[in-house]
Amino acid sequence: MVLFGKRVPIVFSLVIWFVVWELIGRAKLSTIVPPFSDVVAAGMTILPTEKFSAAAAISLRSFALGMALALGIGIPLGVAMARVAGVGKLLGMWVNIFVSAPISALVPILMAVIGVGEATVVVTVFLFAVFVIILDTQVGVRQADRSLVEMARCFGAAPYQIYAKILLLSALPEILAGVRLGVIRGVKGVVIGQLLIALLGVGELFELYSKNFLMEEFWALVIVVFMFAFLLSEAVAFVERRIEYYAGAR
């Protein structure tokens, strides 16, 4: 976008949208759209409250635990599937199915089997994130440069050295892409899990605000959660770009 001969950075379009939002809110076109300034004000009042920090703490903890599980299981499993033909063939189909299946349908099972609590959310996050991490790790390790592996062998590398020094590093760009997608899905998992359970963390707050028609608070929470998801995925994307810079010579 060029205005008065100057290039306007693209993020400024968000400012325009916020202005439009403010105007729609002021014009009282819809009861669900309060003015943006009121949303910001509501955000300022709910952020310091104990209720919010408690909800945020529970949500973050579930997210962190679920992601840790997904990384700890997903990456080794992806490597195993790429390197051991039998494992790949045995599980490949299931990973492919669950990477795009509606995991949200499994939440009622988790609620019945594990109970209505934090553990269910942790497992939901894990299930949302793990499959894409497995899949991308597998792709990365499979595509790892053969000539690098042959080079390492020629120089007498032990198998563990080939894994640690060649395969994992070579697959790092793909693994990180999987982690970024996993993080995005993990955040969705926390929100969906907590919404379906409706008694926990930010999910409970979403329910509470929309049930009592507290639109300012509702939108403030939406913005906070969306920004969290966006910044987290951008943080991984930042690392990804750094790695790709080194991997550019591949």
Binding site: S13, K188, V202, S210, F226
Partner: peptide, 19 residues
């Protein structure tokens, strides 16, 4: 006008809007 919005929406847990 729209790219930043969609970049954010794609990463965002849109399910939050469902209630």
């Amino acid at each position: 006008f729209s790219l930043p919005i969609f970049i954010i929406l794609q990463a965002a847990p849109m399910a939050a809007i469902i209630p």
